[in-house]
């Protein structure tokens, strides 16, 4: 075999390879073809076996040719691969295409009830002023629910609370969260900043705005210098926290036996329907109540407030009927996010 014959073989291989490469139908076929031409046992290697028969001077020359052929084949394989893989990608995309616009499975929707959530909202606002939640007992006695709160037996102010009594004499279901004031004061001295949320009970016929079971949040602050002005400041912040920063408050005299002076607080906010809405009762803790809590009214003073959770939740969520809270219709509850 001479130089010319070898060179011719290589050039023929090159031409033949070019035809076959361009005819390759897939990247897999091309990969196979590529290794049959360029691999360790490929066609070029096979041809170059004949190199040993050449004179030593010719060997480098055929090496140059072989490298040229190898490079040419390699280049056309690469070019063909680019062309093939783009097509194959498109084909894969088409083959795997689905309708991704289906609505997807229904989510697992759970919810938190508006009553505990409203309590939590109040607790969160009051926490920023150092008030912490404390929860008391629902079964109370006449002494703590009434008498220590400056509501003596046989006093007309008792008419403000229609009470559910237990068969056990002297025991009742708390009519308000206010006995928590007494228990809080008795448990530890000032300074006190606490809110007392919980369930309350009254002998009351059920309608759209009344129930015999409902929830209140009591607030109590006792220190050396808290004033009626402070009460206004804190409750104004509470109202804004609950009804938005544009909410306005109106403070007017109220009457509760356990506060003096007593305050009624109305709120109005953009979008509120009926002008001023009364949302809570409050006042400076009555000296008799402070004394019953073991605190000297000459050295300490403070304020207390109480609000109806159902009423706040109704106003905040636009709920027209308080009975929905205990009805617990899942269609109603699912609305609370």
């Amino acid at each position: 075999m001479d130089l010319a014959a070898l060179e011719k073989q290589l050039r023929t291989l090159q031409a033949d390879a070019a035809t076959r490469i361009s005819a390759a139908a897939s990247t897999a076929e091309l990969d196979e073809l590529g290794s049959s031409l360029l691999g360790k046992r490929g066609a070029i290697t096979e041809i170059l076996r004949g190199i040993g028969a050449l004179p030593a001077d010719d060997r480098p020359k055929i090496g140059v040719v072989a490298n040229e052929v190898r490079a040419a084949i390699d280049a056309s394989v690469t070019a063909r691969r680019v062309a093939l893989s783009a097509g194959e990608l498109l084909e894969r995309i088409e083959r795997e295409r689905v309708d991704a616009t289906t609505p997807g499975p229904a989510p697992r929707i759970g919810s938190l009830h508006p009553i505990p959530e409203t309590i939590a909202a109040i607790a969160e606002i009051m926490a920023s002023f150092g008030f912490v939640v404390s929860e008391g007992q629902e079964i109370e006695d006449d002494v703590t629910n009434f008498q220590l709160l400056n509501i003596p037996e046989d006093h007309p102010s008792r008419d403000l609370w229609d009470t559910l009594y237990l068969q056990e004499p002297g025991r009742l279901l708390r009519t308000h969260t206010s006995p928590g004031q007494i228990r809080t004061m008795q448990a530890g001295g000032p300074p006190i900043r606490v809110i007392l949320p919980g369930r309350c009970f009254r002998y009351e016929a059920v309608d759209a705005s009344h129930g015999f079971e409902f929830h209140q949040v009591e607030g109590l602050l006792v220190d050396r210098g808290a004033t009626l002005a402070d009460l206004k400041g804190i409750l104004d912040e509470l109202a804004k926290g609950l009804f938005g920063s544009a909410a306005r408050t109106r403070f007017r005299p109220g009457y509760y036996p356990f506060t003096e002076p007593s305050v009624a607080v109305d709120v109005s906010w953009p979008g509120s329907k009926d002008g001023w809405m009364t949302i809570l009762g409050a006042g400076m803790v009555h000296p008799v109540v402070l004394e019953n809590g073991g605190i000297d009214p000459e050295t300490h003073q403070g304020f207390a407030f109480g609000l109806g959770v159902e009423r706040i939740a109704m106003l905040r969520h636009g709920i027209p009927d308080l009975r929905a809270f205990l009805e617990n219709d899942l269609r109603f509850l699912a609305g609370f996010r």
Partner: peptide
């Protein structure tokens, strides 16, 4: 207070005498 008018009483925020930290129950 009543005769003066509650609406004329200023608003403030109590500043002194914070109780110590208590975790929420």
């Amino acid at each position: 207070a009543r005769l003066y008018g509650y609406e004329r009483i200023p608003t403030s925020v109590p500043s002194a005498d914070l109780p110590s930290h208590r975790p929420s129950p």
